[in-house]
Every structure is written in structure tokens, then in C-alpha cells.
Design a protein around this nucleic acid. Sequence first.
RNA 1: GGCGGGGUAGCUCAGUCGGUUAGAGCAGUGGAAUCAUAAUCCACGUGUCGGGGGUUCGAAUCCCUCCCCCGCUACCA
Length: 516
Amino acid sequence: MYDPSELINPKSKITGQSPFLKETSHWYFPLGKYQERLEKYVIESDEKYKWKENVLQYCRGWFKDGLKDRAVTRDLDWGIKVPIDNATGKVLYVWFEAVLGYISATKELFKSKGDLEGWRDYWQDLSTRYIAFIGKDNVVFHTIIFPSMLMAWNDGNADKYLLPENVPANEFLNFEGKKFSKSRGWGIDVGEFLDLFPADSLRYTLASNLPENKDTDFYWKEFQAKNNSELADILGNFVNRTFIFAHKHFEGEVPERNELIQIDTEMIANIKSYPEKIAKLIENYKIRDAVFEMMNLARAGNKYFNDSEPWVSIKSNKEQCSTTINICLQTIYTLAEVFAPVIPFSSEKIFGMLNVSPGMWNDISESTLNSGHKLGKSEILFIKIEDEVMDAQINKLGKVEEAETYDVPLISYEDFSKIDLRTAKILSAENIKKSDKLLKLRVKTAGGQRQIIAGIAKHYKPEELIGKNVIIVANLKPAKLMGNESQGMVLAVEDSDGKLNVVQVSDASKPGTNVR
RNA sequence: GGCGGGGUAGCUCAGUCGGUUAGAGCAGUGGAAUCAUAAUCCACGUGUCGGGGGUUCGAAUCCCUCCCCCGCUACCA
């Protein structure tokens, strides 16, 4: 990487001008003044709330180098103008302004609701837990810069702002092995995505593969697999088989829970332990593990259903069958509760199918549903995504990428020099009988006149070409096209409409001039 | 260049302040069952833990070195 001042003879790619140094002045934030307090803040927050190791490392690195005062203004003609008199042409540095934008946005939100003070609950109420979920590139702005700004304000004002309790930064999410890039068409727009697939399927896929420890990728195939073999096959099918069974054999009601045998008590223990386990993981920002455990509860449900064999006991021991279905339904209630943060729409559907309203997480118990409670209508929760649908998305990507990639074999200068390119003046042009593509041209070039057959009849009328100065490949081996010998080739390029345009040169070049 | 993170099974990822035969899900192979969206359940992993060197009774884990990927490093948010 070069410093701009080290470049030799630099030029702007756009204007061709050379950059020059100029003097300017800026407003600075005295970050150095806050180092001690910031270090204390980070250490204490970590002790209290257990910060992530990578986040701590970032901070330690900055502290070790020593915090330097930072310019918080820039000379740009766009951005947030510095709101003081002698600051014309100055805008706020993005990270000095963006973090404040979080507060402004909250204020705006409440203002639009007609509540001018509501924003304070989020930024100033001591019971608020301020947690910054961000990507790895933003760590220092949320652990050092913004907290120092808030400290500065808090020092001089009565209304004090909260500092983040934790900044559980994630790494980056990539797309099909490469970085997202709007300009290169690599990725998919969320809105577009949601037109095609359910939000919950996306939410589940993202949550179960969150880049908590390192960069991860979104793959269409993985999305399909997660939707089909986890959401549909494991969770969806467990819910579906239970509901169908209850409607078919128990009149759509929650059946009695009778005498418990070992697998019953084991499953009941799961209903109690999973929410606790999942809650703990979420509180420690281990979302992936939490999501995995959510699905494990559905797995346990399937296993319980399988091992209990209600399709056998319905005939031989209806009381036991009744117990099995009761416990399966309680499990489904629990699944709806624990899955709610990840797949809220499906969760709501399940509550509807159970004909109950969602409760509080801490109230989840093994007997939330009373026997005799009437169940709602059951429906399929997740539709599987077919291969063809997925392939269509993948193919779409390939096309964009192909068009953008320039990957052709290199040739040596020697190879290039073998090609004899010459200017040529078109003296005459005429259509060739029985051909709708070819034109017969007479051109003047090096070595006198010659005949060239060009495949441009669909793009030019003969008379349009006469007198044009073009470029030809002069040493191409002669070939016969539709019975006419062609002694060379005219260069042409296709425009965005698919029309061919012959490459032209100015009249100043004598016909036969070498093109280099 | 400096700082930080990462490189572990076909794929996506856990595990890393040294310690029993390195794990999970998916995919794959075989079997069981048939209530269910042909869904479910059970069984099956000889992986150069990026390469090389070192410390140690013992290294994916600590140290050195090299390679590759990502982020930050005063004007993209």
C-alpha cells in the first residue's frame, strides 16, 4: 500500500489531473484524553458482561498504540455540515456522525409517533440494556469512539447517556464463496429474496450460520437444504404428523395425559430443559448454538413420536397413545415459544394451530395445554424448495459473473506482431446475391486495392459504407465466402443494442497505414 | 508495512489458557418403521487439524517461521 505522497507522477483516472497537496484545518476530538476511562470501561464491562475475545483484542490493540486525537471534520462537498459559523465547507467525519445517527433515528421514530421523550427509554434509562450488534469492521467505533463521545457529553450535561453493555461483533457474511458486491451483481436483494421465499426460511438459515467466529458464506444450496431437510422435514413434519394424528384420533382436542412410562418422563424433561438451555445460549450471544438446540428439540420430538409408536398404541392401548400425543403437543407449544425469535411468522402459525396465544418464555412448562383444549386447523408450515427453483437462482448468478469476468489466454508481443492491421478506404460496396449477411467491399489499402467480404449487411446499407476509413486485418489468409474471395477482414464492434459498427479512423490517416 | 481475526471430515462449521480413541449438522452407505410434507428413527468417520521447525511424557491447542483468506490502519457507510 502506498501513501498518496509517495506516488510517482500520479494522475486522476477520471479527469487526468495530478493531485496536489493543500493546507487545511480541522476540528479534533481529544480522544487521547479519554484513554484511561475507556480502558477502565472496557475492562469492567468485560468482567461484568463477558465481552468477546476478538472485540477485546481490537480494543487492546488501540490502547496499546495509544489513543490519538482524531479529526472529526472533512473537506467534502457532501455529508453532514458542521453546524457552526466558521466551518464552511466542513462536514462531519462519517463515524462521528453515523453513531449519533442511531440516537437521532430513535428520536425521529418517537417524534413520528407523537412522543417527544420516548427515545430516552432507549438511550438514557438505567434499566435499558444497550447491546451493539455489529460487524468486525466497526468494533472500535462502538467500543471506543462512540463511548468516548458519550462520556464527553455526560461530563457536561445532566441527562446521561448509556454506554454499550456489550458489543458482540460478528465477522462477515459472504455470498457463494465471494464478498457481496452490488456493482458486480454478486448477491441478492432482500426485497427480491422475500418475493421468492419466506422470511422465516432466510432467517433460520442466516441465524444457524451466523459468522460468530469467522466469516461464513450464504449458499443457495445450503439455504435449500436448511429449508427442506430441517425446517420442513424435522420441524414441519413433526408438527404436521402430530396434528394430523390428533385430529384423526382425538377429535382435534388435546388428549388426556395418563400414566407415564420412561420415555414420557424423559421427553417431559426435555420440554423443561431445552428452553433453559436455549435461553442461556442466547444470553451469551451464541445464536448458532441456540438455533441448533431449537432444532434438536424438534429432533427429540420426532424420536419420541417414533419410539412411542402411537400408530400401534392407538389400537392396543389408547390411554398410552393419548399420553404420547399430549406430550407431543406440549412439545410443539414449547417449540413455538423457543423458535419465536428466529422464525416468528411460523411460530405465530403454530400458536394459531394450537389455538393459544403466546406466553412468556419463563412460563413454559410441560403442561401448558389443558386436556380437552380444542385445537385449531393444521396447515403445512414449510413448503419445500425444488431443485429447479434453486438452480434458476444459481444460474442467474453465473451469468452476471461471466459477463463481468475478463479471463482470456494471454499472447506474447510476438504473437500480436504477426497480425498486420492496416487502415483502408472503402471504395465501393454491394450486396451479394442470395446472401442477407454479406457485403462485397472494394478497399484501398497497403499494396493497392483488394476485395473483402464482410458480414455486416444487416447493419449497413452498401452506400453508407462508401468513403469510410476502416481498419482491416490485412494478412488474414484469403477465404471464399459464397463463392467470393475475401482478402482480409474489417474490424467492427457490437454496441449494446447488438448493432455492429465498423471501426473507423479519421481521414488524416493514409489508406494502408499500419495500426499499432 | 503495522495491528487483529481465520485456515479442522465431501460441504457448512464447533473444539484452541496442552492431556483419555478430534466433534456436530448436512451429504453419503446400510438397516428399521409406515402416523406424517417419501417425511421419521437407528448404525457407520484411517481427517497430512494450511506447510515446516521447536518446547513437552504428551500439541489442533504453546513458541518460531513461511503460505493463503478477511478486517482495521484520518476523508465508503
